[in-house]
């Protein structure tokens, strides 16, 4: 029997994918930037948010793939933040607030 998936779970999976690829992209850019790149610590923050979001995704959904079309870290983060607004606060999405708070902080950290 195919497990059922709610729209909120699908949305959180999409957010996890965006964050996961934002984190990996940020880490690559940090590596290219050279020693002491500020992006390194930022990428770790994004990765933690990605794993927090992935934890809320049922096991039959992939929170890592497919890779989103965006490649810019800020675009990926903003897309995740935009999607997060669509997730309703219900008992089924309990725990998502952690991701919302992390996203808010990350977007703030990315501000020039």
């Amino acid at each position: 029997m195919t497990p059922t998936t709610t729209p909120a779970q699908e949305t959180i999976a999409a957010i996890a994918r965006l964050l996961h690829h934002a984190a990996r992209q940020a880490a690559r850019e940090a590596d290219a930037d050279g020693p002491g790149s500020v992006l390194q610590l930022r990428s770790l923050g994004i990765l933690l948010a990605a794993y927090d979001a992935a934890d809320l995704v049922p096991r039959h959904l992939d929170p890592y793939r497919p890779r989103p079309p965006q490649s810019d870290v800020t675009e990926l983060l903003l897309a995740a933040e935009h999607l997060a607004r669509q997730v309703p606060a219900t008992p089924a999405t309990a725990g998502f607030s952690i991701v919302v708070v992390a996203l808010g902080n990350l977007v703030r950290e990315m501000a020039p």
């Binding site: 984190a23 880490a27 940090a30 020693p35 002491g36 790149s37 390194q40 610590l41 990428s43 770790l44 990765l47 933690l48 794993y51």
Partner: peptide, 17 residues
Amino acid sequence: LHLSAATQAGLAHAGIV
């Protein structure tokens, strides 16, 4: 393993600073 390695990478860079 991914998270552990990424955290170590972050720590190394912070150490440099």
